[in-house]
Simulated scan of single mutants.
Amino acid sequence: MRRKVRERRVAATAVLLVSALTATLAAGCSSPGGRDDGRAPDTRPPSSPAEPTTPAAPPVLAVKIDNVPAAKPQTGLDTADIVYVEQVEAGLTRLMAVYATELPETVGPVRSARESDLELLRQFPDPTLAFSGAQSKLLPLIDQAPLNAQPPERTAGAYYRSPNRPAPHNLYLRPDRLMPSAPGAEALTVTGFRYGDAPLGGTADTSETVRYPATRFTFTWSEQQKGWQVSQDGTPTVTSEGERIAPATVVVQYVPIRKSEFHDFLGNYTPYTETVGSGRAKVLRDGRAFDVEWKRPTAEDGTEFTTADGGPVNFAEGQVWVVFAKAG
């Protein structure tokens, strides 16, 4: 499945380049008018009449996914273009899966949002965030954020409860009820990620482990799958069909993780993962590890990864996991 997704991403990228060239040539003869997507037209004046504006990337779908043993195996995780791993209460983790090139039939189990999600999603124009609830004081901030918040109570029929699992680990999303089709690879151009040949150097590496206070992830290179097989606490991470999940690229990004202002009903404060700033990271691809630097100047920016000499770091085509680990 991932090979088909990679082929679609390559094809989509080619279409994007052709579309961008066509749009540039046609810009001089286009006429103003309303939008045909049902949304109000943008009436703001351009910053400079002589300079063409860059069209905004289409919105992605981001889904908060449960990541405790009772929630596994997850559904639709292997179809995501990007999977972010974030620390939550009690030293556990939660996932945010971002979809652009393909929408699976079902995603889940869906769980609640966190404050860190709002900063992380600011890089995407008008993203749709699918989640199930949040801390009561956080809900107004979600409503004020520049995103399309879609909890279960807002879209009838988009979510359902599976009778095969106990609540709260049984809530699933039908993505096509939130957006009619996948936005395409162009929706990912804002991330700052680059894809292509591996940088020079690096070290041979077939296994890396990232530890959180109450869980750990291990990524093991599979030559057969051309990806890094994911395991958590010694148990393979698989699809609902039993296939190993093996992203083509894994980024272990070392970031500040501090206490937020919010806590759960037990008094456990939610960790806040700071994704704006700079620091070090490790990029895993093609059975090798590369020590790199990351930089994200503002929340509206994507994240750039560079080598020690400032050169860009390319990721392998395919799924990317970004694992936010606490900077030491």
Results as ranks from 00 to 15, higher is better:
Ala149Thr: 03
Leu147Lys: 07
Phe124Val: 11
Ser116Cys: 11
Gly133Lys: 02
Leu139Ala: 15
Phe131Asn: 02
Gln144Thr: 12
Asp117Met: 08
Arg111Trp: 07
Ala149Arg: 00
Ala145Lys: 09
Leu141Thr: 14
Ala149Pro: 13
Ala149Cys: 01
Glu102Thr: 13
Leu147Asp: 12
Ser112Phe: 10
Leu103Ala: 06
Pro104Met: 07
Arg114His: 11
Leu147Phe: 12
Ala145Met: 08
Ala145Asp: 05
Ser132Glu: 14
Asp143Lys: 14
Ala134Glu: 12
Thr128Phe: 14
Pro109Arg: 06
Pro151Gly: 01
Ile142Asp: 07
Leu141Arg: 15
Pro127Asn: 09
Ser112Gln: 11
Leu103Pro: 03
Ser136Cys: 08
Pro146Asp: 08
Ser132Met: 14
Asp126Cys: 07
Ala130Tyr: 01
Thr106Phe: 00
Gln135His: 10
Thr128Tyr: 15
Pro152Met: 08
Pro146Leu: 02
Ser112Tyr: 13
Leu138Gly: 09
Glu119Cys: 10
Ser132Ala: 15
Leu118Gly: 04
Asp143Asn: 14
Gln123Asp: 06
Gln123Pro: 08
Ala113Asn: 04
Leu118Glu: 05
Asp117Arg: 04
Val110Asp: 10
Phe131Pro: 02
Arg122Gly: 00
Leu118Asp: 08
Leu103Tyr: 04
Pro151Gln: 00
Pro104Trp: 09
Gln144Tyr: 12
Glu102Cys: 09
Glu153Gln: 13
Gln135Gly: 04
Asp117Ile: 05
Pro152Trp: 04
Gln123Asn: 06
Pro125Thr: 07
Ser132Val: 15
Gln144Cys: 10
Glu105Gln: 04
Glu115Leu: 11
Pro125Ile: 06
Ser132Asp: 15
Asp143His: 13
Leu138Glu: 07
Ala149Tyr: 01
Glu115Gln: 04
Val107Leu: 13
Pro151Ile: 00
Leu118Pro: 08
Leu129His: 01
Leu147Pro: 11
Ala113Val: 08
Arg122Met: 10
Phe124Asp: 08
Pro140Asn: 03
Gln150Pro: 00
Thr106Tyr: 01
Pro125Asn: 05
Ala149His: 02
Arg154Asn: 13
Gln135Tyr: 02
Arg114Phe: 10
Val107Ser: 05
Pro140Trp: 05
Ala130His: 06
Asp126Tyr: 03
Gly133Ala: 06
Asn148His: 14
